[in-house]
Each structure stands twice: as structure tokens, then as C-alpha cells.
């Protein structure tokens, strides 16, 4: 299997939204055959150092960061609705990142 892809999801409290996105993305990427691990953190803990450990950053909202991340940023908020048609474009974007890394 290709190397594990490390994602990080962030939300205000690091409790509910980020965990929901973590669970959903891990499950869907596994289903699509990718080896993905996603951590859930609080937005206030997101900085350049933290993001250095990850392949992509999943956000809930268009939150302004004080810096420009070097890794891909995916707006994952639509996943929260649990409506497949809304979640699919987000999953596709994450999968595109997975495939790119796996091809390296």
C-alpha cells in the first residue's frame, strides 16, 4: 500500500465539527482505497509548524490564517451536512490530493 497520507481538520473547539470531518474523510478515503489518517485540532493551534507535519489542511470555514499554508487547503464544511451530493466534491478534492502524493 502507498504511504499513509496525513490530513489535519480544524474547528473552533476541536470537538465536534473537526471530528465529524475526520471520521467522514477517513471512512470515505478508505472506501476509495487510500491510506489516510486525519487529526482533529483547534483552529487556534494551527500554525506553520503544525501544518509541516501534514499533507493537506481541511477547514470548516474560510477562516483567515495569519500565514499562507504551503500545503493544499480544502474547504470541507459541506461534509458536515451529511448530504452525499454536498460531500462528494469535497471527497473528490481530497482524493485528488491523495493520488498526487501516491504518485510521487
Amino acid at each position: 500500500m502507498a504511504r499513509q497520507i496525513k490530513l489535519v481538520a480544524a474547528c473552533g473547539a476541536g470537538v465536534n465539527s473537526s471530528h465529524q470531518i475526520k471520521d467522514a474523510v477517513e471512512a470515505e478515503m478508505k472506501k476509495r482505497g487510500h491510506n489516510v489518517k486525519c487529526d482533529a485540532v483547534m483552529i487556534k493551534d494551527v500554525n506553520e509548524d503544525l501544518l509541516n507535519d501534514y499533507d493537506a489542511y481541511l477547514t470548516i470555514a474560510k477562516t483567515d490564517l495569519a500565514f499562507t499554508p504551503k500545503i493544499p487547503v480544502v474547504e470541507a464544511g459541506p461534509i458536515l451536512y451529511r448530504i452525499p451530493a454536498m460531500a462528494q466534491p469535497v471527497y473528490d478534492e481530497v482524493e485528488k490530493i491523495c493520488k498526487k502524493i501516491e504518485a510521487e
Binding site: V15, H19, R82
Partner: peptide, 20 residues
């Protein structure tokens, strides 16, 4: 109110499923 985010089924997901 959630003092155990890791433990069980995600509460927000359950709320969204309830609304859907």
C-alpha cells in the same frame, strides 16, 4: 455539551442526520 469527543458516535453528525 461534549466532554468525550473521541468516545462515541459524533454528536454533530447525529444532529444533522436527525434534521435530514
Amino acid at each position: 455539551l461534549n466532554n468525550d469527543p473521541e468516545g462515541q458516535a459524533n454528536i454533530l453528525a447525529q444532529i444533522m442526520d436527525f434534521l435530514n
